[in-house]
Design a binder for these strands. Structure first.
Lengths: 144, 144
DNA sequence: GGCAATCGGATTAAATTGATCTGATTGAGA
DNA sequence: TCTCAATCAGATCAATTTAATCCGATTGCC
């Protein structure tokens, strides 16, 4: 019930990338230096995000990458799915996996679909544009 | 972004237990046989759920356990938290963990709190009573 | 044509998780 | 009263997944 560290890192990295909206060339080294994340980790994330189509990367000396869509069109769900794969709370939700012992008479499965949709909706409701905004959050009291 | 198998099993197990609302004595062997889950796994779950206060267990020959609250008063969030600990999408949300590299200027954290709340709300909205209902789901088309 | 810089995939080590085993506890029966 | 059987509880061990590192392929510049 916790998204992986890599997905977490990816969100931080993409958020930092969104702040460089104007500059064309971004590279892994720059973002690693900026976010404090290890360079190899950032490189790995670049590979995955590029494969998912969220960023467009070019190799070579003058290479680098940039967001393939404007920040407002990239949601947390996109990033999480790019790193972790489809959002599915239980393996039941994925089609084709049927190792559940009570497959036939499982009452839990349909409700999990509902929960799953709620989770995905919550993630899809937050865009990179919101994350890269300066400081729109008015002193959240958190879970005091 | 997927809850652990143990938490999944716990939901199935508690759902099966809720269907035995009338009978006082439940034991791990019975539920293992009924759900098809391995007996040691069910025993482990019983320990955790008992520790969390969701079930009341007694040892000895005539021992066993029962739900400490009515099924309508036990939600998925309760079960998941009993097995996995506090629901927190990122370690940022847990108080006291500050190994994030961009702690000071992190724009992601407050939004994660929102997402986290949405997830927990979705889990808290489903009770054991709903899960143990016979078949209220009218032929879900799923993700065809 | 050589060189430097970048992404891409593969390998290795660590951590978390899941399953098994053994021990402590309790009640029933002789 | 004592022994035995049945149960939960905790600890141990193996497996899977995950995260970090390393090396190779590709490309533009000099």
């Amino acid at each position: 019930m916790r998204l992986s560290s890599l997905a977490d890192y990816a969100v931080v990295m993409m958020s930092a990338a969104a702040r460089h909206c104007g500059s064309i060339r971004l590279n892994a080294t720059l973002l690693a230096d900026e976010t404090g994340l290890p360079l190899p980790t950032v490189q790995k994330l670049v590979s995955k995000l590029s494969g998912a189509g969220l960023i467009e990367s070019t190799r070579g000396t003058g290479g680098g990458f940039r967001l393939s869509r404007p920040p407002a069109a990239i949601s947390l769900a996109d990033i999480v799915e790019a790193i972790e794969g489809p959002i599915a709370m239980t393996s039941c939700v994925d089609t084709g996996k049927h190792d559940c012992a009570v497959e036939g008479s499982c009452r839990v499965k349909p409700h999990m679909g509902t929960v799953n949709g709620a989770v995905r909706g919550a993630l899809a409701g937050v865009t990179l544009a919101q994350l890269s905004a300066q400081a729109p959050v008015p002193a959240v009291a958190e879970h005091a």
